[in-house]
Amino acid sequence: MRYDLTRARELAIRVCVAAGASKAMAISLAEATVAAECAGRSSVGFAHLPDYLEGFLKGRIHAVEEPAIFFPAPALIQVDAKGGIAQLGFDRAFEELLLRTSTYGVTVCSLQNSYTAGELGYYVRRLALKGLVALAATNGPALVAAGQSSEAVYGTNPLAFAAPVDNRAPLVIDQASSATAFVNIRQAAERGEMIPEGWAIDGKGQHTMDSREAIKGALLAFGGVRGANIALMVEILAAGMTGANWSLDAPSFEEGNHSPGVGLFIVALNPELLAPGLSARMASQIERLASKGIHIPGRSYAENATEIDLPSSLVATLEAYCLQ
């Protein structure tokens, strides 16, 4: 089904409010959901929205909480989502993040006690669209095994990076430290599809290409030890530096009635204070790399998109929340 972006946002807001979310929380989540679709990240767009709706209904997301914001130092912003969503906390801190980065050259935004963050590239892209360079890290409930252990110890623990580029969408790199995102395993299991080798282990710790067995086991880090090291770095930034739950301690985002209580760590930099004209240099460098056949992340973002396509079965699933 084809939706223009206004109708898509209205759909997301309507179903969130029907599931118990405050209007402010519904608007923040709707904007992030539509942005993920425009970025070509549909697995963390509307397909991920039912996880939030169930979270509102079951208490995994505190649906009407307003984030608290503190400023422990001039270039530090601390946000407590109070069991709500990271998107609303980020929205509430956004203008201060822009102002302080413009003033001081660098600002850190530390967010704790939230549900999983959705599309991580969303946060850094918004900052890059304002001319900033940004890095973000977030964790989630343990889903990824590392080393010789078959126990899940890390979340998929993605990193995202963005930089402004003259006359085009920002450069955005958004990737998990796991071999794939959990939602990809879950969708494959729902369709009864096999998964590539190296993505996951089963409940007995054996490598598997059976997506349904992978659901019972754990994901694997990309690149073995190197990917696991990145997952650990992300864990320290997203949980250690924010005071949020370590992935091992985070309740499930799919079951129960407790918030995962995970973290989001963002660093924003003002390039004009260090390297004036960076966005123009970025444009030139990206064209040079592209001419050599290099893949440039972020080019799939449709900044001027006016419509998105949603599966009719997904729309029916979302609309059903309005009937409960």
Rank of each mutant, 00 (worst) to 15 (best):
Y122G: 10
A231V: 00
A63Q: 06
S247I: 01
M282W: 00
A152M: 03
E319W: 03
I13N: 06
K204V: 13
L318A: 07
Q175W: 06
N304P: 04
P164Y: 07
A75W: 04
G140N: 06
Y301Q: 06
E95N: 10
E37D: 08
E54Q: 11
Y52P: 07
N304K: 13
V106A: 15
N257Y: 07
G224I: 08
A145E: 03
N304A: 14
E119M: 15
L29E: 15
Q175S: 13
A30Q: 02
A188F: 00
G192C: 06
G243T: 09
S291H: 12
I286C: 08
S43H: 12
Y52H: 12
E65R: 14
A93S: 15
A218L: 03
A181M: 08
I286L: 13
E213H: 08
N113Y: 01
A320L: 11
P297I: 08
G147W: 07
F56P: 09
R288G: 12
F90K: 02
G256Q: 03
A169C: 06
A275N: 11
A73Q: 10
L314W: 01
L88C: 03
T180S: 12
C16G: 05
N257M: 10
V165D: 11
A35E: 10
I85V: 15
A75S: 13
R100N: 02
V124E: 06
G261S: 04
T33P: 04
V262A: 04
A221T: 10
S291G: 14
Q285C: 15
V225E: 14
L323V: 15
I266H: 01
A86Y: 00
T107P: 01
G192L: 05
E213A: 14
V44D: 09
L269V: 13
C16W: 01
S291Q: 14
P271I: 07
Q324H: 14
L5N: 07
E54C: 10
L289C: 05
E307V: 14
V124S: 07
L53I: 08
N157V: 00
E54R: 12
V225R: 13
V15Y: 04
Q175N: 13
I286K: 05
G20M: 09
T180V: 12
F94C: 10
A179N: 06
V64P: 06
I215L: 11
F46V: 02
G263L: 02
A221I: 03
G147E: 11
R125P: 01
M194S: 15
A12N: 04
G256Y: 02
A12Q: 02
A200H: 05
V133C: 12
F161C: 05
G227Q: 01
F265I: 00
A47K: 11
E10C: 07
S211Y: 07
S28F: 02
E151F: 04
S291I: 08
M25G: 07
L53A: 09
T116H: 12
I296M: 10
A75K: 08
G224M: 09
L269M: 13
L269P: 04
L248Y: 03
G83E: 04
A290I: 11
D202K: 00
V133W: 04
A218R: 02
A19W: 03
R299V: 11
L278N: 01
L219W: 04
L248R: 12
C109E: 02
G205F: 00
S252H: 02
A188D: 04
R41A: 15
A200K: 05
V106W: 05
I85M: 12
L98F: 03
L318Q: 06
R288T: 15
I61G: 10
D166N: 11
L57M: 15
P50N: 09
G224D: 10
E31K: 11
A320K: 15
